[in-house]
Design a protein around this nucleic acid. Structure first.
Lengths: 260, 260
DNA sequence: ACCTGAACACCGTTCAAGT
DNA sequence: ACCTGAACACCGTTCAAGT
């Protein structure tokens, strides 16, 4: 009768239970499918019951943000500031990979949540602990931007931030514009449709095609799927961290920068 | 009677007219207020009439994206690749400042639009024209990420990407969490509320407070409002561009990098 | 005092009925 | 063949009526 863990069907609703259910719901069905009514049904409760624990949907989303941010590993204390920040940010990225909807929810918030501020404060603390000036730490945080939260900020949507149902959208959509007058390959059944798409891509976007062709040499097969997200993330992160480290060594200040 | 320009009330609907009206609508009322029904009313037309020119709302949003991207200035042809890319990206940023809703709409698209691909292709072309390898150009685009489209990717929402109604949200929201047990300043009418908020900020987020305090020395007055967005954008952009240039000079390839 | 059903003012989109 | 009103299946949230 009494099962302390698991999904107790009639446990009294609490803000934490509401948030936990909402995270699970978003993980499973996507953030667009998360509605107050649907969440209430999932909890076996009338919609209005939720409003006892969250003021409205915006506050629910704020709660989701902080629930996700709480999963980011605490900072490591030994080693350089650079290694510590690097590791923390890579941890944040893992959290975002677990909750693909989180990036969009975080960016949709009008004001930063308490959890976001706490995380931000902690990262600045690591920079300061490494000897960076307040000035440089400030601009470093701006430069890292949402990357500090694990955001990839892809130019084309692949990986974090992509909606679940759009796996092959980039490849197929590339050559399929509404105004394409004369078809190249046709759909009669002749050649490989992927090869035909590749030909149209090359005609329309030669430089993108060159990149894709270069990538397909080593391993990848499908258009746009050849990018190693983890490598790209670390590439950009290291570009920024090394630039910041260089400025730090040079005793950079915003006053001496090319600010005019 | 016949006024060729301006808002002709009974001009035959066209896809372009629909998109122009939608951009104006979003500019004026915000993207959240843009609905098919509302847009139809704005155009003096029954909702279903729109579906003759856009398949559905998603296609309307795709159209908005390309309409905005078309405003980005064409690339300059003389000078270094670095200067050309820098200028182009700063132009993209100006476009996004004109249409604060655009960043969120662009990131919400499941697949890249034709206009996004064309812009992407063009920027890669500039990098290649400057002598960068396909390999480096590829990773450079990833590193620049959506910044290439003018995205600021702020950690805390100020400027581009912020919804119109949240001007002072960051400052006021910082010290106002739901679980704040004992109030520091109270609201009886005693001290400066800004100073009280600052005191609570300092207690809760000391490193953020230090940054804010450092900023308020030169000019700024309100919490969080002291950041020069343009400076921060160029700071991050130059950090990346200079890092990429350094790799280019060193003959960097992803094979020789610390890829394991 | 607490909880909740019905209602309000919206959505995007389908579909059948009008011309 | 074209256009469009009504309808469908949803939303978040208010509010008054129930216990």
């Amino acid at each position: 009768m009494d099962r302390p863990s698991g999904t107790a069907r009639r446990a009294p609703l609490s803000r934490e239970r509401v948030l936990r259910a909402a995270v699970a719901y978003a993980d499973g069905a996507g953030i667009d499918a998360l509605s107050m009514r649907g969440l209430a049904q999932e909890l076996g409760v009338v919609p209005m019951a939720l409003y006892k624990h969250v003021a409205n949907k915006d506050e629910l989303l704020d709660g989701l943000v902080d629930a996700v941010l709480a999963e980011i590993a605490p900072p490591v204390v030994d080693g350089t500031w650079k290694a510590a920040v690097r590791e923390r940010i890579l941890s944040a990225r893992q959290v975002l990979l677990r909750h693909p909807w989180a990036a969009r929810v975080i960016t949709s918030r009008a004001a930063p949540t308490p959890g976001a501020l706490a995380y931000l404060d902690s990262v600045i603390g690591t920079l300061r602990g490494g000897g960076l000036s307040v000035d440089l730490a400030h601009h470093a945080m701006h430069a890292l931007g949402s990357r500090v939260l694990g955001f990839t900020q892809e130019l084309v949507p692949t990986g974090v931030g992509t909606t679940p149902g759009a796996e092959t959208g980039a490849g197929a959509g590339a050559g399929t514009t509404a105004d394409s007058g004369g078809e190249v390959g046709g759909d009669g059944g002749g050649g490989d449709p992927a090869a035909a798409g590749m030909r149209e891509l090359a005609a329309r976007y030669p430089h993108i095609a060159a990149v894709v062709a270069d990538r397909t040499h080593d391993g990848a097969s499908v258009v746009g799927a050849g990018c190693d997200d983890q490598f790209e993330f670390e590439f950009a992160l290291d570009l920024l961290l090394e630039g910041i480290e260089r400025l730090h060594r040079q005793g950079w200040t915003s006053a001496t920068a090319g600010r005019a």
